[in-house]
Simulated scan of single mutants.
Amino acid sequence: MIAGSIAFHLPLSLNASAPPERRGVRRDHVRMMVLSKETGHACHDQFYHLDRYLASGDVLVLNNSRTIPAILKGRAASTSLELEIRLARKIDDRRWHALLVSTEGVKEGETIVFSAQLQGVVEKTTPDSPLSMIRFSKSGTSLFNEIYSIGEPVRYEYIEDPWDLDYYQTVFASHPGSVEMPSAGRAFTWEMLFKLRKKGVKITFIQLHTGLSYFLNDRWDHHPSKNTEQYIVPTESWNEIISAKLSGKRVIAAGTTVVRALETAIETNELSGWTNLYIHPGYQLKVADGILTGLHEPEASHLAMLSAFISQEKLCQAYQEAVEEKYLWHEFGDMNLIL
């Protein structure tokens, strides 16, 4: 268990196994638990009413990283053994760290044939890491085009059906690179963003390309400090955020990815790079005043980050209330606003 995370019982019935749209709910009409940092009081609303909780001059920061279909299936050239890999993080235009789901007989130097147009060579494997280095036969945009052509989105056991990639995208996603959906932004619609702007809420974008969060085996270390992710905070966005802070306005991060990027930027004085920042109870947040996020599973590291916004005791009470109120969990579930 990661220090700062919390344990609770999550009934299987509260796992959102299908996108809201396939449950007859509009994308922006999922439920939202609004939680006070000071009192711990929770009120229950719909996400569509987010504008009621934000004020003119507040800055809402969104992650516009686009989800890629990170599961690739192929076969080993030397043995014809069927293989599956899960892309974990991009190294450069041609190479990725990836999880080899089927590793039996796969050695360094092995060529994996994914399609007539794409192959990959296993350049490096290490016994103390679940990830291998894959060098692809294509690079840059050509590689992404092929990945989008043959890949499947990452899904875990609570997702019963293989939903199309479009269900794993935010409406504003524009920079391909996330292997799992930056899901805190999923509920937004263009109508919703227009409504917020009309009220005077400033909306700005950053990118943090999410890495693979689970290696399909509990023996591997899943601590956030082991998960290095690439981020970019555009200068224009940073200036808007700092201006809001100096004028006493709030900065609300849509998702743990945004918090990680912003807090890394101010700690390192670097607006782009790689981060393995671990935000935990007692961490002094310097940029984010509030967070909009989904509901996270028991003992998840994201709960440790939320405990930097609100005490662990209040967070635990709120999550118990969310269970009682039958909120839905995970990337297709309901939302939580902490202010």
Rank of each mutant, 00 (worst) to 15 (best):
L62G: 05
K37V: 11
Y158S: 05
E240H: 08
K37A: 13
I232V: 08
K138W: 08
S65V: 11
S5F: 11
P153K: 12
S311N: 04
Y158K: 07
W220T: 00
V59Q: 07
T268F: 05
G282A: 14
V106E: 00
R86E: 08
I338T: 10
A318C: 04
P298N: 06
G57R: 07
T111K: 14
A3G: 13
A300F: 05
E267Y: 11
S139D: 15
V61F: 03
Y48F: 15
L118S: 14
E21W: 04
D128N: 14
F136D: 07
L165C: 04
L100F: 02
E84L: 06
I112L: 02
L277Q: 03
E82V: 05
E240L: 15
D92F: 08
P176Q: 01
T235G: 08
G109M: 06
T170R: 04
D166W: 10
H9F: 10
L83C: 08
P20N: 05
S36Y: 01
L216T: 12
L277S: 04
S183F: 10
V201L: 02
R197I: 11
H175M: 05
G105R: 02
I134G: 02
I68Q: 02
S142R: 15
L277H: 01
P11E: 06
P182E: 05
E270F: 09
L193Q: 07
A322Q: 07
D51Y: 15
F8P: 05
G273M: 02
L50C: 00
G294N: 05
S225A: 04
S115N: 09
P20Y: 09
V113S: 02
P130W: 02
S247Y: 12
R66Q: 07
G200T: 12
I232Q: 06
R31N: 10
S272Y: 06
I266F: 13
H223N: 02
L118I: 09
V25C: 01
H175V: 12
I68G: 00
T264L: 01
T268S: 10
A3L: 13
I159M: 02
F144M: 05
I291K: 13
